[in-house]
């Protein structure tokens, strides 16, 4: 209980630090919001006026206070590019991205765990070489390159999936899945490669342990030993890595969504960055970091449930 309370307290502190870093990073720029709104060619007097009215001349600490106050009271401001309330935009885009993030996680785990186990069971044989080499190839190519290959293959040549665009899952679920599939696959491949490597090394270690030898000596079927006994012990570390990779996923999502023109969180972040829409950049960066932090926390807590040996006081 104390552990969970401590973690909750640390969430608040971490969220505060995330907000400070986000604000800091977005305030190192030489240009400012006023020039963004009016353009670089605008009249200096008008520019100064706008700066004053936007409060850009206030000390940093005051500007930060105003921003964080807005976040806390639900006033996330307006996007300069989309001319829409940021909160609305975010909710819409987060929904779109959740679909491909979850799909890519499922694809990655569904392929990586069997592949990794297969490699560990046949360690140093051809099966291991095949699995490990393909995993190495998987982590060596940028996701957007996989994306391009998939567009060429599945969209242009075979015509199975659309090569770009987005459909709202609430309205047309089937079409939404079709649009989400290729981006999810492009995201999932890199992740799958990481998880395969992780599963293989964890399983290799576990298969050498005493209790595995005992279960084999007991006469249990090899299938039971590997898939029930060994894997049950490997799944914790693999899940932790999968959780940590969510951060990586949210980085890649920017590139992949932009490539597939899939209008989710990553695409929104990119539009914000490209147009230097500072309020929107601050909001997207803050939300992504917060989501990554919270996911890691959830994974930690799940780990407690999955592995009863861990008891933190």
């Amino acid at each position: 209980m104390t552990y969970i309370l401590n973690r909750l307290l640390s969430i608040v502190l971490t969220l505060f630090l995330i907000s400070v870093i986000t604000f800091g990073v977005t305030n190192i720029l030489p240009g400012d919001v006023a020039t963004m709104i009016m353009g670089t060619q605008s009249n200096p007097a008008a520019l100064a006026g706008l700066r004053e009215s936007l409060g850009l001349n206030d000390p940093v600490i005051m500007r930060y206070g105003r921003w964080i106050g807005g976040l806390l009271t639900g006033d996330w401001g307006h996007s300069l590019v989309f001319k829409q309330p940021i909160a609305e935009l975010l909710i819409q885009k987060i929904k779109a991205s959740s679909l491909i993030v979850i799909m890519s996680m499922v694809i990655a785990l569904a392929c990586a765990v069997p592949l990794g186990v297969w490699a560990a069971v046949h360690r140093n044989r051809w099966q291991d070489t095949v699995s490990s080499s393909s995993a190495l190839l998987g982590i060596s190519l940028p996701d957007f390159f996989w994306g391009i290959v998939m567009i060429l293959l599945f969209a242009r040549t075979l015509g199975w999936f659309p090569s770009s665009g987005f459909a709202d899952p609430a309205q047309e679920f089937g079409r939404a899945l079709m649009h989400a599939f290729l981006p999810a696959l492009a995201l999932g491949l890199g992740l799958m490669a990481h998880l395969t490597r992780m599963t293989r090394s964890t399983m290799t270690g576990i298969l050498e342990q005493e209790f595995i030898r005992v279960s084999r000596a007991k006469g249990l079927a090899e299938r039971t030993v590997v898939w029930r006994y060994a894997l049950a012990n490997a799944i914790g570390p693999v899940m932790t890595v999968a959780g940590l990779q969510v951060g990586y996923l949210f980085g890649s999502i920017i590139v992949v969504e932009t490539l597939f023109n899939y209008t989710g969180m990553g695409w929104l972040t990119y539009q914000a960055l490209l147009n230097r829409d500072v309020p929107l950049i601050q909001a997207t960066v803050f939300v992504i970091a917060a989501v990554v932090m919270l996911t890691n926390l959830i994974v930690d807590l799940l780990y407690l449930l999955v592995d009863p040996r861990i008891r933190l006081g």
């Binding site: 971490t14 990073v25 977005t26 720029l29 951060g247 949210f250 972040t269 917060a290 990554v292 932090m293």
Partner: peptide, 19 residues
């Protein structure tokens, strides 16, 4: 640890866009 909550690519993109 807080900085690690920011995906490296996102952090790099943001810094690059800002500078």
């Amino acid at each position: 640890d807080t900085l690690l909550s920011f995906p490296a690519l996102l952090l790099a993109l943001t810094i690059s866009a800002m500078l």
